[in-house]
Design a protein around this nucleic acid. Structure first.
Lengths: 141, 141
DNA sequence: TTCGCTGCAAAGGTTTTGCATCGGA
DNA sequence: TCCGATGCAAAACCTTTGCAGCGAA
């Protein structure tokens, strides 16, 4: 129906079991062009220029599908609600991509001694926070 | 008024310019005992056992004050709303603790070659995500 | 006495859900 | 035709805010 839908997008959808719709194509193209770290609202505003009737719910649903397919990635895996921890000895986090659990890991296990040498844009580094993403024992099937 | 308020908590508050209140003391003690990564709701439920009339707003306000004082730390500095990025070549993030901006940094700048040797609890690592926290150029005053 | 802290209720922002309809396979 | 996708509106969270009264300094 829509001649503008490219073969490569059809293949991408086929590979991930997604139907090829006009909204999905426009969303995908918009996000390919948006650099940085857009929020769903950012994407929504941008896509509305091409499909004024698109709904925010559709944007959310497709973003989640793209994340599940690995086409997109969440910048932070634990943005759901504020989480705090005591500010004590240096440690980092093991984050299970399946159950989203967070486990502390002592800095000593990481063997991270290197300091960033040159940081772009004059950024002044204070500390590292390392997330190790993977699967916890019970999510390894 | 409350004999249970410890000298060390008085000193802590004094050091950070915070008034010593019963709610604040109970919140502080509860969070010192809560390991892991509690949410404000978690803290609220716990503290309600000792102060049934405490309000969730008070919990939020005090958590923020504790974070500003450095007594607590946020597990993720960018949990506000979902942010996505394209899943492309390996990079990490420079996060400004003042303006919360996120800038990409290529993995090559980090000099991170070490792989975690032994991970506790049988965790299966897939990738690293490194946040470098500090101040961006314009937030260095 | 003063000003910060608390509790309440309301508002604000983000994300999800239910459902009727539409449209791709 | 069938089932997934869409749009809409409502609901469900999570967090902040305004304000009156209370209490620490």
């Amino acid at each position: 129906m829509d001649a503008k839908i490219s073969t490569s997008f059809r293949e991408l959808c086929g590979r991930h079991g997604l139907a090829v719709t006009h909204q999905r194509q426009v969303l995908y193209e918009a996000m390919q062009r948006m650099h940085g770290h857009p929020s769903p609202e950012d994407v929504y505003h941008r896509v509305r220029k091409r499909i004024p009737s698109i709904s925010l719910a559709t944007v959310y649903k497709n973003i989640h599908l793209f994340i599940e397919s690995g086409i997109l990635r969440e910048v932070s895996l634990h943005h759901g609600s504020l989480r705090v921890e005591r500010n004590e000895h240096p440690h980092h986090h093991l984050i299970c991509t399946v159950c989203k659990s967070i486990t502390d890991i002592d800095e000593i296990y990481l063997g991270l001694s290197a300091k960033p040498s040159r940081l772009p844009g004059g950024f002044l580094a204070e500390r590292y926070a390392v997330d190790i993403l993977g699967r916890c024992k019970s999510c390894q099937t």
